[in-house]
Design a protein around this nucleic acid. Structure first.
Length: 260
DNA sequence: ATGGTGGGACCCCCA
């Protein structure tokens, strides 16, 4: 069972790349972030033609997440609980049936939070608190659960080519890193970090200042696994080559394989 | 280097 996450920075601009990568990597489930589309305008036909079910949680212009799956959805839930006034589309959960029981997969797009001295950063931290509460509750089910997405958090200095350049950035604030670490304390496993101690596992390279050419990247796209999912983890990989494609996203796919 | 690049909506915002 192959499960992947990819921030595509606009589905309409990226549909050809997404179709190409689905054909190449053949994930069973792909979580997308920053679809930047309302549900009605998401180009589902070319994806359904490849045999995928498509569920979206979009909004106009910004944000938006989706889950593409070869397995049919048993349930879909949209939105992260804990703030009824939050209208940003950043979280959805799909539930699937496998031969070994239920599998829960979340596609999440965590707030960027910059600049640090603004309400955007407090929104980021409160969103992370809500995520922690939601995760704590779901872990009681003792099921395989995968929280996949763009966390907008650089967990450790080794997750950036130039960590000193990120000291004033919301992605590398102590509070952001602590909140990410708290997911580990709950029992969630950072899948990519669990299978490699390589420092060069970046998942994002800025469009600006030749970041890709200099390999000036950061690791901010993560798959966090519940104990029941981590027990079945076989491999994790970063599909870095897609960053060199025509019209690339600034993020690349990250994929795990579970023995299910 | 107060720029640089890119997507999407609209005459500016977000990353």
């Amino acid at each position: 069972m192959k499960i992947a996450t990819w921030n595509i920075n606009g589905i309409k601009a990226r549909i050809e790349n997404v179709v190409h990568w689905l054909e190449e990597a053949k994930p069973d489930i792909l979580c997308l972030q920053e679809i930047k589309s309302v549900d009605e305008q998401f180009p589902r036909e070319p994806i359904e033609a490849l045999g995928y079910h498509v569920e979206t949680h979009g909004q106009k212009g910004f944000n938006g997440v989706a889950i593409l799956s070869r397995l049919p959805f048993d349930e879909v839930t949209r939105g992260l609980p804990g703030n009824d006034g939050d209208e940003q589309a950043r979280f959805m959960e799909g539930v699937f049936s496998t031969t070994r029981g239920a599998l829960r997969v979340v596609s999440l797009y965590l707030p960027n939070g910059n600049p640090v001295a603004s309400e955007k950063f407090t929104y980021k931290l409160s969103w992370m608190e809500r995520l922690e509460r939601w995760t704590k509750d779901r872990l009681k089910l003792e099921e395989p659960l995968i929280l996949a997405g763009d966390y907008n958090v650089i967990p450790e200095p080794q997750d950036a080519k130039n960590p000193e350049n990120w000291l004033d950035d919301a992605l590398f604030q102590p509070e952001s890193r602590q909140a990410f670490r708290r997911l580990s304390y709950l029992g969630m496993t950072d899948a990519l970090r669990a299978v490699t101690d390589s420092p060069d596992t970046y998942t994002f390279w800025d469009y600006q200042a030749g970041a890709w050419q200099k390999n000036n990247g950061i690791r901010i796209d993560h798959l966090m696994l519940s104990p029941e999912a981590a027990d079945r983890l076989a491999s994790a990989s970063v599909h870095k080559h897609t960053r060199a494609w025509e019209k690339p996203s600034d993020h690349v796919p990250v994929m795990v394989e579970l023995l299910v």
